[in-house]
Simulated scan of single mutants.
Amino acid sequence: MNTDRTNADRTNADRTDADRTRSVMLGDVEVLRAVEWQGPFLPGHQLVPGGGAELWEGNADWLAPHHWQPESGLTVLVLQTWVIRSAGRTVLVDTGVGNGRERPESPAFHHRQGDFLGPLAAVGVRPEEVDVVINTHLHADHVGWNTMEVDGEWVPTFPNAQYLLPAADDFHFGPGSGYRGGPEGRLIHQDSIAPVDRSGQLVRWEGTHRIDEHLVLESAPGHTPGSSVLRVESGGDRAVFVGDLLHSPVQVLAPSCSSCFCADPAQAATSRRRILERAADRHELVVPSHFAGAGALEVRREPGGGFGIERWAAAFA
Rank of each mutant, 00 (worst) to 15 (best):
Y179A: 03
Y179T: 12
G181C: 04
G182F: 03
P183N: 09
E184C: 10
G185Q: 13
R186A: 14
R186T: 03
L187Q: 10
I188R: 15
H189K: 15
D191V: 07
S192A: 15
I193A: 05
A194F: 13
A194M: 12
A194I: 06
P195S: 07
D197N: 06
D197M: 10
R198D: 08
S199V: 00
S199M: 02
S199I: 00
G200I: 08
G200Q: 04
G200K: 03
V203N: 12
V203R: 14
R204D: 03
G207A: 01
G207C: 09
T208G: 11
T208W: 01
R210C: 02
R210K: 13
R210S: 08
I211Y: 09
I211A: 02
D212I: 11
D212M: 13
D212H: 14
D212Y: 13
E213Y: 11
H214L: 05
H214R: 05
H214N: 12
V216Y: 12
L217H: 02
L217C: 03
L217Q: 01
L217V: 03
S219V: 04
S219N: 09
A220M: 10
A220N: 02
P221D: 01
G222T: 06
H223P: 00
T224Q: 14
P225Q: 04
P225D: 06
S227N: 10
S228A: 13
S228N: 07
V229T: 07
L230D: 07
L230P: 07
R231K: 03
V232W: 01
S234F: 08
G235Q: 06
G235S: 05
G236K: 11
G236Y: 04
D237E: 14
R238N: 00
R238D: 00
R238C: 05
A239R: 02
A239G: 08
V240M: 08
F241R: 06
V242H: 00
V242I: 14
G243N: 07
G243W: 13
D244H: 15
D244L: 14
S248R: 01
S248M: 13
P249L: 02
P249G: 08
L253D: 09
A254G: 04
S256C: 07
S256K: 02
S259I: 05
S259T: 12
F261Q: 08
F261A: 13
C262A: 15
D264A: 08
P265T: 02
A266S: 10
Q267A: 15
Q267D: 01
A268R: 11
T270E: 10
R273H: 09
R273Q: 09
R274H: 09
E277S: 15
E277Y: 12
